[in-house]
Amino acid sequence: MDYFIQALSSALVLIANFDKEIYSIVWTSIWISLVAVTVASLLGVPLGLAVAFKDFFGKKFLLQGLNTLMALPTVVVGLLLYGFFTRHGPLGEWGLLYTPMAIIIGECVLILPIIWNLSITAANSADPRLSLTCQAMGATAWQQGIIFLSEVRYALLAAVVAGFGRAIGEVGIAMMLGGNIHGFTRTMTTAIALETSKGEFEFALALGLLLLLVAFIVNGFLQYFQRLAR
């Protein structure tokens, strides 16, 4: 126990002293996840709204598929994309493997089903009276769309935040596609995995605490948006 408490206090010292190494890793994690969540949202939210509003053949199947994909294992995404990105893979020429771009693409694939699916839920959660109210007020189709988006904004934000949380906390993709390269593709999760195996428990613990903090903040936003969406 002493060992753990000692490690914990050194971890806190590292955090409090704004250890450059630690914060550069935190920043790498955050910006990669932010880009991934932005791209996934730009795709997932419109797709979610489209699916929610349109009836088409195979919709039920698609919804079931999306539900399954929400639990997509990160290592499977990593494995498949590794096959694409490796030098002899179909996309090998692009030289994406072991770059932040590879992680971003992997995380996009990982969280797109989440954002897509939750956007469908968000659109369906809109009050059935909303559309009639907009029409009765004489809103044009365009205005109705804007009002609709504004009404489900918190549910959509919750979908985006949930995607971000998944992206920043995953380790499989970042490790397999990023390679944990120092100062380049080293994220909080891969660094934690590495530093422990190096015996740098305090350093890993400091990162772990910061990851927890990020998760805590993300979750706070998530609950806030979910409450407002009701």
Partner: peptide
């Protein structure tokens, strides 16, 4: 590039990055 991984992983990364 310091990758902080085992020998096998390093060989694969070196191989892919030439």
């Amino acid at each position: 590039l310091a990758v902080g991984q085992g020998m096998g992983a390093v060989l694969k990364i070196a191989n892919d990055k030439l």
